[in-house]
Design a protein around this nucleic acid. Sequence first.
RNA 1: UGCCCGAUGGUGUAGUGGUAGCACGUCAGCCUUUGGAGCUGAAAUCCCUGGUUCGAAUCCAGGUCGGGCAGCCA
Length: 552
Amino acid sequence: MNDSILQTSNFIKDIIEKDKANNHDLTIMTRFPPEPNGYLHIGHAKSAYINFSLAKENNGICNLRFDDTNPTKENQIFVNSIKDDLAWLGLKWEKPTRYASDYFDKLYDFAKTLILNGDAYVCDLTPEEIRTFRGTLTNPGIDSPYRNREISENIELFEQMKNGCYEEGSRVLRTKIDMSSGNLNLRDPVIYRIIKTPEHHRTKNKWQIYPTYDFAHGQADSIEGVTHSICTLEFEDHKPLYDWLLEKLKIHHPQQIEFARLNLSFTVLSKRKLANLVSEKYVTGWDDPRMPTLAALRRRGYPPVAILNFCAEVGVAKRENTIDISLLEHHVRKELNQTASRILGVIDPVKLIIDNYPSNISETFEAINNPENPKAGTRKIPFSREIFIEKSDFMENPTGKFFRLTIGSEVRLKYAYIIKCTDVVKDPKSKEIVEIHCTYDPLSKGGVATDGRKIKGTLHWVSASDSIPAKIKIYDRLFTIEKPETETDYLKYFNNDSLITKTAQLEPSIISSKEGSNYQFERIGYFVLEKKYSNNNSPIFNQTVSLRDSKK
RNA sequence: UGCCCGAUGGUGUAGUGGUAGCACGUCAGCCUUUGGAGCUGAAAUCCCUGGUUCGAAUCCAGGUCGGGCAGCCA
């Protein structure tokens, strides 16, 4: 994890500071507890970052624990992808990797302890009956008829549940708390249920019963010695149950602290909505570069440190929030500006012919790889009579502050020469400009005017015969509205222009690029090489993020 | 007409009884062989009403508004 990441204070740090002041021997222990039932996204990154950074700043420990208590939803594929994503971010967890399923035996014993103490009972009500008996938000529930079973009968029944004697859904183990509590989580919550298929990804067919989240999470925290169990706001109502179980069991009692999960503008982060985008084919998969998943951001070329810096800067608080996606992009640009190699590439090319430049020669010019980092060195780029420039860099009838090319105006070709536009050739039918004719100032080699005249506009270009065609995928925000998350018909606001594919001409040095390498195409944006060769043998680049562009 | 949580510029986030700070964004200027970056500046904020106090974003009371909770999901 990057040590240079800027940190502001937050209420969790305050709590930890106080706890440390009260107990000088305290070793801070946190954990990141994903359920292996999906891919990690930027919101998980925030949560992971909080847990990992809190441990690191306090010379503590952070575990990675998979919350794998429900085999109907979880599998090994997600365990692997989550580990990959965390490693990619550079977050290092305490070894070994933990699993809630590691504690199934202990959890089973804890449950028996509860039964023996009269704090839990086997209930034969159907799921529907349990729901009815639970009451409503405003009306108290009523006791299950099985609530006062003999302890010995409960023990026997629970053991038979474990042994697979009963059908799924026929019986559960519930705590005995308070059916009239204003907090529904305290109305005798279910702590064990029967699940026979599919088999668990780790414990296989050993268990026929599985603990619920409420029964597994706190106890797992306790077993591991977690001191601060940090989770999102929706678990606030579970905290009294978390505390109740730990007190009844008389075991180490971690402190649960809740914070507000991340929301990002112009995208969605709920698993269901993301899954819909995939299943309804709005995107090509979970790692489609438009998605907010870590796998997608990686493919998009986001540097991990930019994501970490972003997580550090969004802060930790309890109020609902929607972070402006431009803050994320800011951190991506900030990092890439320092690290990405520059190249010249023309995405929407139009041919430019320098009429007074000899057709039988070519020159090479030295280009700076990264003006922010002299150590990145230089490279050669070829120049010739016919080049490509960006269509948008020529305007026949310029309006406002247009510093680029127009008939009669002078402009600098970066690293090369100053040129002056003399004429354009249009397609007779479409009226589209097909050729721009210019003359160059032979004395301006390197782009400097010998007479000291100021040249305001500088264009990027590539030599027509030496450039390399490439496929460019340009991405935009996933949705057209700021908060699609709050809309039920959010798919209506999907941004149909979120992916645009173009063919570009790139300078030849790009040949030596490696997959995953970040580039800045000067004056355009940041790009990452996705695949060296597409079907037609040209490389494919994903746009990471555009350059900020204040052109009017 | 239950229980719990929250409210500081457009968006986030500091502040813990003493000039409301920072970041992103926006706007303007400077600089520039990237209209990028960088530099400088600007506009913009304490949910409301009372109370305590010399002094309140902060403490107290009462409101208002927003969010969460009725899986054998996590």
